[in-house]
Design a protein around this nucleic acid. Sequence first.
DNA 1: TCAAAAGTGTTATCCTTACACCCATGT
DNA 2: ACATGGGTGTAAGGATAACACTTTTGA
Lengths: 321, 321
Amino acid sequence: MDHQAKGTRKGTGGGKGNDVKADLIAVVVAVTKGEPRVLTIGQASALPSGPFELDHRSLQSGLRAWVERQTSHPLGYIEQLYTFADRDRIGDELQRVISISYLGLTREDQTERSPTHGWHGWYDYFPWEDHRSGIPAIVPEILMPQLQAWAEDADDPDMHHDRWQRATIAFGLDERDWNEELVLQRYELLHEAALVAEAKHSGNTGSALSIPGRPMTADHRRILATGIGRLRTKIKYRPVVFELMPATFTLLQLQRTVEALAGRLVHKPNFRRLVEQQDLVEGTGETMSDTGGRPAKLFRFRQTVLAERTVAGTKLPLSRA
Amino acid sequence: MDHQAKGTRKGTGGGKGNDVKADLIAVVVAVTKGEPRVLTIGQASALPSGPFELDHRSLQSGLRAWVERQTSHPLGYIEQLYTFADRDRIGDELQRVISISYLGLTREDQTERSPTHGWHGWYDYFPWEDHRSGIPAIVPEILMPQLQAWAEDADDPDMHHDRWQRATIAFGLDERDWNEELVLQRYELLHEAALVAEAKHSGNTGSALSIPGRPMTADHRRILATGIGRLRTKIKYRPVVFELMPATFTLLQLQRTVEALAGRLVHKPNFRRLVEQQDLVEGTGETMSDTGGRPAKLFRFRQTVLAERTVAGTKLPLSRA
DNA sequence: TCAAAAGTGTTATCCTTACACCCATGT
DNA sequence: ACATGGGTGTAAGGATAACACTTTTGA
């Protein structure tokens, strides 16, 4: 790197003028018995994380090293989420910490028991995000009234209108408008309205009572929200669900997994056609007959589609020429 | 941040054991006279960048500060692209540098002349990416033969097949299969095949000759590829093009801008309908009659849609219930 | 026989794509 | 008149969403 700016650096040699700490932090997801779960350490309130060290070959391998060291759990698919920076007090010095967050998908080892880490349903942290059984009661009964109060607390009519509009968009006024992808927007709105426990620390005047939903250390819940949002978006255009499935599965199991992630129910006949028509899966020839009803064919993911298909992704009216 | 890992940190107090340098780096894009251009410093071979400093309020504001200091050019819309890490020699010490890259959209000030920075057409760096006049000659005449040679140079048949398959997917064998979003995959493929100048530095055995396309400092061209790819994806689902347009414009100007970014032509009548039907623009009542032909209505972007619409984004067969 | 889940058929609707054509201005 | 770009109509085809229905098992 020899960009022009070098000359203006303070203490280019070895001084630690603008040096920062870099942290790696992981949202590791699995779906077990139809519930999406996230890997946590400590009292279920922190995501696995650790400093990026000089002997890590890359950010990805550093992250894998940390997660595997802290949880003995190997990771499969991982993807970078977002990088953010905060000022942090370490000892007496004010120092920068940069956090580079990743999303990881894996299968949960249900046999293991550990005091240092565990799996927790992600809807424990975001109870308003699960719409599989309809709109959760807390949305109309607690969140919306609180958000309305927050909006009315605004300084001027414009601000009031803006706050309430953001709230109605983020949460969807009637059921058809609910957009499951807006996980981060919803969390940030609740944070801004000082309705989540994490907002209290920053000397916020905010409302007295906190809403349901388990808080996390520092801004880990915001990172988790980012990961959930990303995954909900991604399952729609890339076949990442299969990273969470066992080697063979029935179409209903696949559907339940998608529903768990999206937080909403999908239409069974159409879901089957969608999956089969895209050649994402192939039958194994075997069937499974455990959960009452007619035995279901077992399928496996067709690895080859990963190479064959890259994503259509047009939305422009291209002209042929 | 008090994640569990803290205890294992080397020199938690003030030691610089695992401290890193953090660089901010910007891909700043404008579209001028139907050509997409990128802001560069130095001999048109580096992107604006600089260290993230302790007095920057946030990553975004640090980036804005650097770009504005280096180019006197204020930024509009910005979004984070990707973060990557490399080992770098600074003085005698081996040290980490983390680069956090951003995409910025703006309008070019065509009056300014500066010796320290300039705007350059992005197809100078990626001549194979412009398909507005059909497939560029260098694709079939230079790139594909070189890639084929590279594929045939593989150690075993599997590797040969894999390399050639990746090449055909990335570049699209026949015109209909060209996917303009795969900018990064194409660049990385050419890099892996040691066909771009930047690949030579890393002691690569690679081929003797480099292909057309202006190289950049360090990995800046890879970052630019990331930015172009992201922008090409994004214009399809978010109205970001308007960040690049003047206050009022004709629909053909808008179309030319989209075409410049996508590197392909779009179908005029359908493009108009697409734009108008989505209520993205409103007429100003005025017309413009400069470039031969019937005077065109002028439009302006409807700012309100940013709030109203968040993105539909369904692709799952949801069930109503 | 009934409950539960597997699976198939079919239609209405909307969106995308393509083609054909007319309109208004300058030279 | 004609070239150039502006602008509208419309029909074919495919994807999506919704509804109705048959099949195969276990209790």
